[in-house]
Design a binder for these strands. Structure first.
Lengths: 356, 356
DNA sequence: ATATGTTGTGAGACCGGTCTCTTTTTGCTG
DNA sequence: CAGCAAAAAGAGACCGGTCTCACAACATAT
């Protein structure tokens, strides 16, 4: 009862010092684990601290040491399996090195990302991992660098920024997936992404502000071109942001005079939406339409048929990003790099062989 | 280049004050947005701050105000869709109230949970949301309360603790699901959970240390009892912690002399594993075995047949927990409560009607 | 004109740690 | 037992904000 009445000012080193009958400095040395203190006094202080239930104020500690022991992570959407797995990888790497993680959600919105970054800098995080929502606006990230806070980009690279980035091998992954479809006899291939369509239609690959998506599209196009297929841009669609939008995109795609026979989904959320769209249209996979999705998400292995996917090894990506950031924080001398985590195509049952 | 050479000590209020030719106190008033300052001086200070790219040190701010503006969340496993959705709800509630969220993973391990709680308290979070891994060890949580930090339990309640808890209506949910199975003619029903089996076998409901699971089991048993079915504990299985364990559990369950005809999965991860087990055993749902899972996870709606589930409305649970915690932080006078978020049974295709 | 109040600004204590510098104690050697 | 170095303990500045209090300047009341 008297808990709430008595807000009970937290126990400080000074309190412990008094109880142990030593100076504040000595108590601090014991409690902070630095300097030299005799065994006898150490015991006294520890006993006093235990009796008083002393808990160090990390805030104060961070303030004088200048290190907070936490790394900030700004992701697009924790609810997305891609990011939650990545966060797990980052957390594991962080914990191993004695760091903690503070997570902020940008919802893939630039302004939210910006204020999240500002806030984390304000909290004096020791380092920052960011999934930039747009690769064309880099002021806030440049600011991070000027503030002297180590930064690692995740999933998307920004070459102009001269900073480490951990990504998948998106271009190659898309090429591999696309080639596979072509080898199976497909000639009309569509690529579907959730990127916001600027002005409604697809205009120019170079203008896709998300580098991961851009590189996948480039890979897709290059594989089509290499196979001598005409009009590689014709079936590229953006804007599959929710189920309704996706339904529309898919319906329009398939009512083309020459509809695509295979779909490549830019991520597992889009993949799931496409799957549901096809289901609601009464189409069968792979008989009516083939598909490949990115990410080995839960749902992809329990559908009928199970979905052929590009395995992105997101956990490793996250772990690598975490490790890289920590190396930076610890001032390990390293060249700025783009680290690519290789992917692999996992063949399951969603691609039909046709035309043979 | 000179970025890294010049670690560039951060700009402080004192720097801004000097540049604006005012006292530190005045600059602080402008920058901190408190007290009264004339318009003219305000402009001067703001201009100086902008020129110097001043960023407040939130650490220092927190130290003097005693409020950090962050709430700590300790979850079992962010990778689990249940928790990532909950975190989203919590984050949204927090952001709305101007708080930020710091997340720690316990991996459902008690020691990890304990140290995470300690750490967050050390970071002087303004409040804490915890998913207690065990409802029988409460020392560390009692410590939170003694430290005067508001606490809200999530998903699991601990009556002895006299603290707010936001949970599902687990007992009712289990009853509803079980009754549904009974109504469809099932007489031998199994309940499968991922809880660690203490000593291998299932002994006593009261000893299940996770209150959510315990209440679900209680509901399950009570529905069976109410229907006059014999031996309600006979098909309760714990320990479905990974795919291999689950395969074993399911295989043993179905090779019983009188095997169950329906399975109730304690959460969506177990549900998925059960689904895969059944698949690998070549059994068809619902013809050979019926099943119901908790949580409207992605995978449950795209299987054949889609899975009948208990919809837990986790986002709402998270949001509610966040709001409740914030109310506590802001000292809103409220009675300690257990808030139950109601669930509903979503009928899909994984339950067969038999014996009629 | 003097008393009273209001408003804006400055000086400096404070939060709870760390850490440098000084002083005291201890132990060893000649 | 003096002499000295090394080890242990203490005193107090500092980190970068907030915030209380003192004071100055000016407006209003008497």
């Amino acid at each position: 009862m008297e808990d709430s009445a008595h807000p009970k000012r937290a126990v400080t080193v000074a309190d412990v010092a008094k109880a142990a009958k030593v100076s504040k400095a000595t108590a601090a040395r014991v409690l902070g684990g630095y300097g030299v203190v005799s065994a006898k006094i150490t015991d006294q202080v520890i006993a006093a601290a235990a009796a008083l239930e002393y808990r160090p104020n990390e805030l104060a500690r961070s303030m004088s040491t200048g290190r907070s022991g936490i790394i900030g992570v700004v992701v697009g959407d924790i609810e997305n399996a891609f990011f939650s797995l990545a966060v797990r990888g980052i957390s594991d790497a962080a914990r191993l090195a004695g760091f903690n993680v503070i997570i902020a959600n940008s919802g893939e919105e630039f302004d939210a990302e910006k204020s999240a970054v500002d806030l984390l800098i304000g909290k004096r995080v020791d380092g920052l991992i960011v999934t930039p929502a747009r690769c064309d606006s880099i002021d806030h990230l440049q600011h991070v660098r000027r503030a002297g806070v180590p930064l690692v980009l995740f999933d998307r690279a920004i070459p102009e920024l001269d900073v480490d980035a951990v990504t998948g091998d998106d271009r190659d992954a898309a090429i591999t997936a696309t080639r596979h479809l072509i080898e199976q006899g497909h000639r009309r291939l569509a690529y579907v992404s959730a990127m916001d369509a600027e002005g409604g239609g697809f205009t120019d690959i170079g203008r896709i502000s998300n580098s991961a998506v851009r590189e996948r599209v480039e890979g897709f196009v290059s594989a089509l071109t290499e196979a001598g297929l005409p009009n590689p841009l014709h079936y590229i669609r953006l804007g599959a942001t929710d189920q309704q939008q996706t339904d529309g995109v898919i319906k329009r795609l398939l009512s083309d005079s020459a509809p695509p026979t295979a779909l490549l989904a830019s991520d597992s959320l889009v993949g799931l939406r496409i799957f549901k769209s096809l289901q609601s249209l009464g189409l069968s996979i792979p008989k009516d339409v083939s598909m490949i999705s990115f990410l080995d998400a839960d749902w992809t292995s329990v559908t009928v048929p199970p979905i052929t996917i590009v395995d992105q090894r997101v956990y490793e990506m996250g772990k690598l990003a975490g490790e890289r950031l920590i190396a930076r924080i610890e001032r390990t001398p390293l060249a700025v790099e783009r680290l690519r985590v290789s992917t692999s195509l996992v063949l399951r049952g969603s691609v039909a062989t046709i035309g043979r």
